[in-house]
Nucleic acid binder design. Structure first.
Length: 992
RNA sequence: GCCCAGGUGGCGAAAUUGGUAGACGCACUUGCCUUAGGAGCAAGCGCCGUGAGGCAUGAAGGUUCAAGUCCUUUCCUGGGCACCA
């Protein structure tokens, strides 16, 4: 007999929870908890059984927190921009807009199937224009602050994905996505100065409650490095160059210097050298070699002498400067002072016959011979002794590193300096499926941010989105989208001329500096002045206003009309309102002064008009209305809005009018604001853009005025617990921390770190021990598992498999064991009896279980929490009957893990509110330990037996009992113990 | 090469942080029940040994009355970085 039917109860409760809004974020407690999963990238394959492990864990955790009285924010969303979605779409010939929506729907269905308690009202999707409006807005703040800049430097280019990549996107020098060898390619791109934040990103790791190895990964990635920066005179020219050394301890050994082949200063340095052409050619060769795909630095040593010498500030010796293949232009200063005590310097000097000088002798005398004959390079600074300079002679360089730096710095030869391995963030992709940049360029390629009113810059729906491979995004082919008309406002930002206006009226006129090709351009014509009204129509009783939404041209937002000769503004307003809206009774009309002036070309009347707009407030007496003509209705919608919206419309109206030519009340020849053609930026943002801040949007997902409301942000931030894959350590988690800090600095966020506590998830491997993959055909589909065993079994099993952060192989038979546990749990209900009590041992076990389950969930030790429940079940099953209160508590403990089973049993126990809203069981502190203990008897440190006593016996009492033990008699007998160790309530150890 | 994390039964793993190693689950063995069982129930289950006992936490040393846990050396496995001066 199967005691429960998972299919019925899971569907039933999921439906009920959704109807009752069980998972709506609570807003009633003063204790908040924000627990977050790394949102998924919805691939075409749907979830496999490994994906939801983290989601189940946060689900268990958040359910318990809610039962403990917290307001819990536990949201979910989708990170749907990026290459895989685009590749999938290309392969299957569907628009990514379509395939993404489909994949998201499938993911959501699967997540819901697992009974995860997400508040779907807060779902975010990075590809939703309402979301990426704010991604664009935020990037714009970086642009405006100078943090985001345009660069043309060579970057990593994946020839297969046809896009530039950030350093973080490489894996062993290959494209992380497709495994192709990456080459260096000069490319116009947007870059973000994440290196400005390197120090803080490093230092603030100390305040985070993250797993140590993740912090370590970030530390290594940031790669802070401390050394000395020297300034060296170039011999014979009035120039100085700088070098950077971290291993400066052997500074007296320096005999030459090298410069990166693509160093900016190289051409200038050798401008007077006779064979400079030859040198530049060789340098070029080296650069090409370096930039080619699959370049291996340790296999290639190339260089050429530049013909110039640098003067060593310390030894005053001349250091010949060589171009070399191992110097990096973008690390340190791109020029290195070189010595015998560095492997690469040594190899280079050997190849080109450059003189070397030893100042360091190995402690290990067996290799001293080979070192002194320059047979091998010696670079061990810890096990060696300095012989030069005199002042440090006989000391170990490792021990006096700081002393040497101080000495050199004090002499003024060099300054202390810090370098990072972290590079600025290459923040542009030459692909279609990403956020467009809120940037336009004028004809001189000067960039302008797009005004806030223009956001979002919507990614156009297109038929062709194949990457071009030329270093330009596919968007570059969409002429309609790229070319925009507009002007630059007082804030230096771009404002577009609405396309409706541009098409019907203004393009010809506005394109005033380009009079070729526009027949209707009438600039020489006389300008006619007209007086117009723009009406705000007030509701008779409420604080509401009527605006019109024109489907055709011009003054979107207001009922407008011309004032004819002999008419007052008031007359005109009455007339226009009656005609255009059909309202019949007007209470009051109030004419404001001019609020806007504009010059435009009227396409119907074929004349240039200079129009003065009077703002008129028309107050209706009633809502009586006549039917208006179909024609009017066809071109205009009427909408009631509130006062604020009217006010914002007025600003907009005013702004719109700016593209016309009005200066100090007079029409001028030259426009004050020149409307011109601009080109949109065609790169798109990398996949990491949306995920850098999505966690903030959950807090206030529908806000149209800000990316997050400050007060709400203050309440929910920071994320208390963040759960996801360790593979994000050096990308998402660095980017998001950086992004967050920038907005903290702008005063827009309350804390300078986004994620207080981080927990990584261990992978679930396939039953064969390999990664689950289509390639191996070993994927376990959660749909099948849920079908056969139910969501609760899947959930419980994934939490029971092993330590949460460790990767474990799937085991179907193990899962069947967990399923048995649930069924036995159900059966136990038959033994429930309200009037029964149990013995002390069980009472204690029960209290211990409450404590352990609660503690373990907090520490993400779900496997031991579950095993404790199994122990309790095993024990209770042996009883004749089980007290109702105990079973109820047990159901509550199980409910976070198996929410459907929990809810079903809770209901069957006669409860009418949800178990998930019930109060988490409390344990009785006094009932955690029994009053008897088992004492271990050791003799000479070896276990010889145990005995049971009262808890809390004094040492001599315990010893007396131990002496009674037959093992004592056997092994100690009459001998006199040398020593007796007694650990209270634990053990007796007799040393003989 | 450098930096992390980790090595415990046939398997997944526990171990109150120096105090009874192997909880809990899987698999396996035996028995009961059953027409049957890939169901249920009961018992057993680290290795050697009939037994007393001995040996066991990758290996070797050390500290300690006592080590899976601390120290030293070393070997594997997984992950990250690898031209970063």
């Amino acid at each position: 007999m199967i005691p429960y039917n998972h299919k019925d109860i899971e569907k039933k409760w999921q439906k009920k929870w959704e109807e009752e809004g069980l998972n709506k974020t609570g807003e009633s407690s003063d204790k908040k908890f924000y627990i977050l999963d790394m949102f998924p990238y919805p691939s075409g394959e749907g979830l496999h059984v490994g994906h939801p492990k983290g989601y189940i864990a946060t689900d268990v955790y958040s359910r318990m927190k809610r039962m403990q009285g917290y307001d819990v924010l536990h949201p979910m969303g989708f990170d749907a921009f990026g290459l895989p979605a685009e590749q999938y779409a290309l392969k299957n010939k569907v628009n990514p807009n379509v395939s993404t929506a489909k994949n998201v729907a499938r993911y959501k269905e699967q997540l819901k199937m697992l009974g995860l308690n997400y508040d779907w009202d807060r779902e975010v999707n990075t590809t939703d224009p309402k979301f990426y409006k704010w991604t664009q807005w935020m990037w714009k703040q970086m642009y405006k602050s100078g943090l985001a800049y345009e660069s043309y430097d060579p970057i990593n280019w994946c020839p297969s994905c046809k896009t530039g990549l950030a350093n973080e996107d490489l894996e062993n020098g290959k494209c992380e996505r497709c495994g192709s060898d990456v080459e260096k390619k000069p490319l116009r791109q947007w870059t973000i100065r994440i290196t400005d934040y390197a120090d803080r990103l490093l230092a603030d790791l100390d305040k985070l409650d993250w797993e140590p190895h993740i912090k370590e990964l970030q530390r290594n990635w940031i790669g802070r490095n401390y050394g000395l920066k020297y300034k060296l005179k170039v011999k014979g020219v009035d120039m100085y160059v700088e070098t950077y050394s971290t291993h400066y301890e052997a500074f007296c050994a320096d005999t030459f210097a090298v410069i990166a082949a693509d160093h900016k200063l190289l051409p200038e340095l050798i401008s007077n050298i006779t064979n400079k052409e030859e040198i530049l050619l060789k340098a070029k060769e080296i650069s090409v070699l370096r930039n080619s795909a699959g370049f291996k630095a340790d296999e290639i040593v190339e260089g050429i002498f530049t013909g110039i010498y640098l003067e060593d500030p310390i030894t005053k010796k001349d250091l010949p400067l060589w171009v070399s293949s191992y110097a990096l232009a973008d690390y340190g200063t791109g020029i290195i002072k070189c010595s015998a005590h560095d492997e690469r310097d040594f190899a280079f000097a050997k190849k080109y016959g450059i003189g070397l000088h030893l100042v360091l002798l190995p402690d290990d005398s067996s290799i001293r011979e080979k070192v002194s004959t320059h047979e091998v390079c010696f670079s061990d600074f810890a096990h060696s002794t300095l012989i030069e300079p005199e002042i440090f002679k006989g000391k170990k360089p490792h021990d006096i590193r700081e002393e040497i730096a101080d000495y050199i710095a004090q002499k003024g030869w060099a300054v202390k300096s810090t370098q990072y391995k972290l590079k600025d963030w290459v923040f542009a992709r030459q692909r279609y499926w990403g956020e467009p940049f809120p940037i336009v360029f004028d004809e001189n390629h000067k960039s302008y941010a797009v005004a806030d009113s223009e956001l979002p810059v919507v990614l156009p729906m297109v038929d062709e989105y194949e990457p071009t491979g030329t270093g330009e995004s596919p968007l570059a082919n969409i002429k309609d989208w790229i070319e925009v008309y507009g002007y630059i406002n007082d804030d230096g930002e771009f404002v577009s001329v609405p396309s409706t206006v541009a098409e019907k009226v203004s393009v010809q006129f506005l394109d005033i500096n380009d009079d070729g090709g526009h027949d209707s351009y009438q600039s020489k014509k006389e300008v006619k002045e007209r007086n117009n009204v723009a009406c705000i129509i007030k509701h008779p009783t409420e604080d509401k206003y009527l605006i019109s939404k024109w489907k055709t041209v011009t003054w979107n937002g207001f009922v407008t009309g011309g004032i004819e000769d002999g008419e007052t503004a008031e007359d005109a307003a009455r007339k226009e309102v009656l005609e255009e809206t059909g309202f019949t009774s007007i209470k009051n009309v109030e004419v404001k002064d001019f609020f806007s002036h504009s010059l435009f070309y009227h396409p119907v009347k074929q004349e240039n008009r200079f129009a003065h707009y009077h703002l008129v407030i028309v107050e209706l007496a009633s809502l009586d209305r006549e039917k208006i003509s179909d024609e009017e209705q066809a071109i205009c919608d009427l909408v009631w809005v509130n006062k604020e919206e009217v006010e914002s419309l007025l600003t907009r109206f005013d702004m719109r009018s700016l593209w016309q030519f009005y200066v100090h009340g007079k029409v001028t020849e030259e426009p004050k604001r020149k409307v011109q053609k601009f080109k949109r930026e065609t790169n798109t943002m990398p996949q990491w853009a949306g995920s850098s801040w999505y966690y903030l949007r959950y807090i206030d997902p529908h806000n149209e005025n800000a990316f997050v409301d400050k007060a709400k942000e203050h309440k929910w931030s920071p994320v208390d617990f963040y759960v996801g894959g360790a593979e994000h350590a050096t990308r998402h988690l660095i980017y998001a921390r950086f992004w967050h800090k920038f907005f903290f600095d702008l005063g827009l966020l309350s804390y300078d770190e986004p994620f207080t506590k981080l927990q990584t998830v261990g992978l679930i491997m396939a039953e064969d021990g390999r990664k689950m993959s289509k390639r191996w055909g070993n994927i376990v589909n959660p749909d099948d598992v849920v079908e056969k065993y139910g969501a609760d079994t899947l959930r419980l099993y994934e939490m029971f498999m092993g330590p949460f952060d460790q990767s474990v192989a799937w085991s179907t038979s193990s899962m069947a064991g967990v399923n048995r546990f649930i069924e036995r749990f159900f059966k136990l209900k038959e033994k429930v009896n309200n009037d029964v009590e149990v013995g002390q041992d069980i009472e204690i076990l029960f209290n211990q279980t409450i404590k352990k389950v609660g503690d373990d969930i907090l520490e993400f030790k779900f496997n031991t929490a579950i095993s404790q429940m199994m122990i309790l079940l095993n024990t209770l099953e042996k009883e004749e009957s089980v007290p109702l209160r105990m079973y109820k508590g047990f159901v509550q403990l199980l409910a976070p893990f198996a929410p459907h089973v929990g809810e079903e049993l809770w209901k069957e126990l006669g409860q009418d509110t949800s178990v998930h809203l019930s109060e988490w069981p409390q344990f009785d502190e006094t009932k955690l330990a029994s009053d008897t203990v088992t004492i271990a008897l050791q003799i000479g440190g070896k276990m010889r037996g145990t005995f049971v006593t009262q808890r809390g016996l004094e040492d001599d009492e315990v010893l007396n009992l131990a002496k009674e033990h037959e093992q004592y008699k056997k092994f100690v007998g009459g001998a006199v113990p040398k020593k007796t160790i007694i650990i209270k309530d634990k053990l007796v150890n007799i040393v003989i």
